[in-house]
Nucleic acid binder design. Structure first.
Length: 259
DNA sequence: ATGGTCGGCCTCCGA
């Protein structure tokens, strides 16, 4: 069995104690991190390495930044999403570990609607779709995990009507997300919990956490070869309630080991 | 009574 988790930590330095506590209790084999908000050289490597994790870090100063931590070696690393050479933002890391092709992705937020930011989000989603075609053609187990900044359906947000003009839920955003999933990927959480209302993100503002005004925007999308091995998927709400919490909480899945 | 989101970085931007 291999346990793969994803967590937008909103600064690895500000969140280090929370992340290490969670690593020690949840013991994921692979942790996909987003919004580390630091350059590779300033990432707290030692704390992960002493716990037996290898690292692939794609850093950026102050903004964005993703990483993969794994108890197995990380083979054939890819540190940029193909398709737009001028894109300097650190939003994508991919490698093979435990025989699974895993990606840690931080999809652009896209707000405000109708400007450069939203155009960039849609272009990024088109690039992800194009890349997913190639990954699926390889017929290997693939787990594309991360902060998608996409609310897939009304049951994934506390107030769907209030979010219709937001880049996380706009019709065009949901269509672009479905166009990726419909290539043949499975949303691990929704596949195993079809009727469960569950969120992965609660804004810091307006008492969103205490009112459970959340969004489900962190996802694990699985290729058929991974989905056939899917045995569990859970959102761990506990870290969101801790002191100095990230606004996102971890979601993880387990894949059966191949016989 | 007070203040009311947070992180990074430099006084504001991004989320």
């Amino acid at each position: 069995m291999v346990k793969i988790a994803t967590w937008n930590v909103n600064s690895i330095k500000a969140r280090l104690a929370n992340v290490l506590d969670w690593l020690d209790s949840a013991e994921p084999d692979v942790l996909l991190l987003q919004e580390i908000k630091t350059l590779e050289n300033n990432f707290p490597r030692l704390e992960f390495e002493t716990r037996g994790y290898n690292l692939l870090i794609v850093g950026q100063k102050a903004y964005n930044g993703v990483a993969i931590a794994s108890r197995d070696k990380l083979h054939k690393p890819l540190t940029r999403l193909p398709g737009e050479r001028a894109d300097e933002q650190a939003r994508y890391a991919e490698a093979t570990t435990f025989g699974v092709r895993v990606a840690s992705l931080y999809l652009p937020n896209g707000n405000p609607m109708g400007g450069d930011k939203y155009d960039y989000k849609l272009r990024w989603m088109a690039r992800l779709r194009r890349h997913a075609i190639d990954l699926l053609a390889s017929e290997q187990p693939v787990v594309l995990g991360g902060d998608y900044n996409v609310i897939p359906a009304p049951e994934d947000v506390y107030d769907p009507a209030g979010w219709e003009n937001d880049a996380l839920y706009a019709l065009e955003t949901r269509r672009a997300f479905r166009a990726i999933v419909h290539l043949g990927l499975s949303d691990a959480f929704r596949a195993l919990h079809p009727d469960e209302r569950a969120y992965t993100y609660w804004d810091y503002q307006g008492m969103a956490w205490s009112n459970d005004h959340g969004l489900r925007i962190d996802h694990l999308l699985l290729s058929p070869q991974a989905a056939d091995r899917l045995e569990s998927c859970h959102i761990d709400r506990a870290p969101r309630g801790c002191d100095k919490a990230s606004d996102h909480t971890p979601i993880w899945c387990t894949l059966e080991t191949t016989p």
